[in-house]
Amino acid sequence: MIVIVTLVVALMLSAAVSALFFKDLLSAVIASCLVSLFASILFLFLQAPDVAMAEASIGAALITAVFMIALRRTKRYEE
């Protein structure tokens, strides 16, 4: 069990660090979407289905949609 949790945390960290280094901001938003995916799996493994449900709804749909609207108003590429 501890192996699976460690692996999921490592994947989540790698996705989060990759979001820092992308120059294309759309890719960074997709990476944050992936972080919430792994967080949802992690909460389900730690036996907290309600937290996993909230994380899935907020991280997957709401944050993506809000960042997309924000990117429409500004520029897509970082200098």
Partner: peptide, 8 residues
């Protein structure tokens, strides 16, 4: 997830 992918 369907909503998120369609937004992207």
């Amino acid at each position: 997830m369907f909503i998120g992918v369609v937004a992207i």
